[in-house]
C-alpha cells in the first residue's frame, strides 16, 4: 500500500523527531520501545511517538519504509537513526546528543 508509505513519509518530514514504537511514550508496551522513550525523555527532546500497534498496515509499513525489520525506529529530521540497540549505544557514546545538536534539535530545557 503506497498510502501508508506516503503517510509515514509525511510524519517523518513534518516532525523533527519521530519515534515509531509499540504503545505510547506515556505507556510503552514493549521493553525496547520503553528504553528509547527513557533516553529521549532523559535528554529532554521533544518528539512525536507513533504507536504502530494501532494499525496493522502501519506496523508492516514502517518496516518496509526503511527496510528495517524491527520496532522501535527513531527518525531525526527525516533521517533514520536506528533501533533500540543503536540508539542506546549512541546515547552511551554521547553520539546521540551530537546528532541532535548537529541537526539543530533542542535538548534539555524543553517547555513540555
Amino acid at each position: 500500500m503506497s498510502g501508508i508509505q506516503d503517510w509515514i513519509a509525511n510524519e517523518v518530514k513534518t516532525n523533527d523527531v519521530v519515534l515509531f514504537m509499540k504503545g505510547t511514550p506515556a505507556f510503552p508496551q514493549c521493553g525496547f520501545s520503553g528504553q528509547v522513550v527513557q533516553i529521549l525523555d532523559y535528554l529532554g527532546v521533544s518528539y512525536k511517538g507513533v504507536n504502530v500497534l494501532e494499525d496493522a498496515d502501519l506496523r508492516q509499513g514502517i518496516k518496509d519504509y526503511s527496510s528495517w525489520p524491527t520496532i522501535p525506529q527513531l527518525y531525526v529530521k527525516g533521517e533514520f537513526v536506528g533501533g533500540c540497540d543503536i540508539v542506546r549505544e549512541m546515547f552511551q557514546a554521547q553520539e546521540l546528543q551530537q546528532v541532535f545538536t548537529e541537526k539543530g534539535v533542542a535538548t534539555g530545557q524543553t517547555a513540555e
Binding site: 525496547f32 528495517w68 533514520f80 537513526v81 536506528g82 533501533g83 533500540c84 543503536i86
Partner: peptide
C-alpha cells in the same frame, strides 16, 4: 556504520525474523 552493520545482520536473519523470532537485540 551501526545502521549498516545491523542491516547486514538483519538481512542474514530475514527468514527467522519473519518466522517466529519476535525480538532481536543486536550488538
Amino acid at each position: 556504520s551501526r545502521v549498516e552493520a545491523h542491516r547486514m545482520v538483519n538481512e542474514v536473519l530475514a527468514e527467522e525474523l519473519n518466522n517466529g523470532v519476535h525480538a532481536l537485540a543486536i550488538k
